[in-house]
Nucleic acid binder design. Structure first.
Lengths: 199, 199
DNA sequence: GCAGAATCGGACATCACTGTCCTATTAATA
DNA sequence: TATTAATAGGACAGTGATGTCCGATTCTGC
């Protein structure tokens, strides 16, 4: 790590590029680095000085995502209180990830990473970070709150995707942010059927 | 339309290319035309004779998707019987779309089509084809089967995405095809919570 | 105000993909 | 079998993104 201490402007520029990249890639997954630089109001050569090549930028984004993920999950305190409440907190947190989650699903190089690549390592770390969620879901099933006939894996991937779908709907102006939060939660928890009492 | 009557081999080659394109693009959205040609076991020059440029290939795929969509929705007979049964039939049909549905969500040029483009026209047609689904959902809400506090738009987009997620899980070997069908249906209908009677 | 850091704004070579074109083969058909 | 249709397999130029490099300019801290 050469950048043990960064000057204020350096770290500010770095952040600006990272944020711009999130925004740009969220809008168009195949955006060029020139687009990112433009969005960050930075010369393309400057971008290349911070991130020598595209892969490094992507990885910085991935690391960034990992950090936010970790924080969101930690703040949801998934091991506290009733599983259902914890799940609600978690989903609320996930929704904060916003555009970042889109990146997770759309980055081309994430498609089918060969093992032993940087990308593969990222997904391993992601698994680690998501461990508490796994534990929470298993707990929910034990407590009889979450359907036992679904695999933990399915529920975990579904959770993430649903948040993404909600965000996508907001992007499309189909829902407001607030509506999205509510409707995503409801859909995940109880689906689209009207609760029936004649079951 | 110059190709009023195609020779047997011509239409066969065309189909082979189209099918190969679906497979290849499903695996890697940014695949090159060379990849598609290779998968179709056809020279790249041949591919270009059938589809002069990439846009034409994509549009042919889109038209193809539209056809299948139309058939699936028609076969689900969304206007027959109880709304819930019709919904189940529909979801079953959607699942047949398989890889094709991935194309719908992943094709880069579909990201933010400018109005009055071929892509925009495709989405208009898609809306038309999906009209029966819209009607079905509205009917479900009137009949008190489907949650009334969700917009029809949300449910429609959620349906499609959920099928996609299920297909994605199958791709990842996380679920078998049969499991996917069941778990997607259950998730859409009643979410992940265990039905509680103390509500 | 000055020195060093950071940035700008290009020029440049490279690379992968694309679309066009042409000739030699192979397949289909009358 | 002769003729036509269809394909293979390249060569080729154009294009846009990428990564490198460098001189000129602007910003920052002292």
């Amino acid at each position: 790590m050469t950048d043990t201490v960064e000057s204020g402007s350096r770290s500010r520029t770095r952040r600006a590029i990272l944020d711009a990249a999130v925004r740009v890639f969220a809008q168009r997954r195949a955006a060029s680095l020139a687009d990112v630089a433009a969005e960050a109001q930075v010369a393309r050569s400057t971008l290349h000085r911070y991130f020598p090549d595209r892969a490094e930028l992507v990885q910085a984004l991935a690391d960034d995502l990992l950090t936010v993920f970790e924080r969101v999950i930690r703040e949801a305190e998934t091991d506290q209180g009733p599983a259902r409440d914890a799940l609600q907190r978690l989903i609320g947190g996930y929704l904060e990830l916003g555009e970042r989650i889109y990146f997770l699903f759309s980055e081309p190089s994430f498609n089918q990473p060969d093992p032993d690549s940087e990308v593969a390592r990222f997904f391993e770390k992601l698994d680690l970070v998501c461990k508490p969620v796994e534990v929470l879901i298993a707990r929910g099933q034990r407590e009889g709150v979450i359907a036992r006939n679904m695999t933990v894996d399915w529920i975990m991937r579904m959770l993430l995707w649903m948040v993404f779908i909600g965000w996508d709907a907001v992007e499309d102006k189909a829902l407001s942010r607030l509506q999205a939060q509510a409707v995503v939660l409801q859909t995940i928890e109880s689906g689209i059927l009207e609760p029936s009492d004649n079951q």
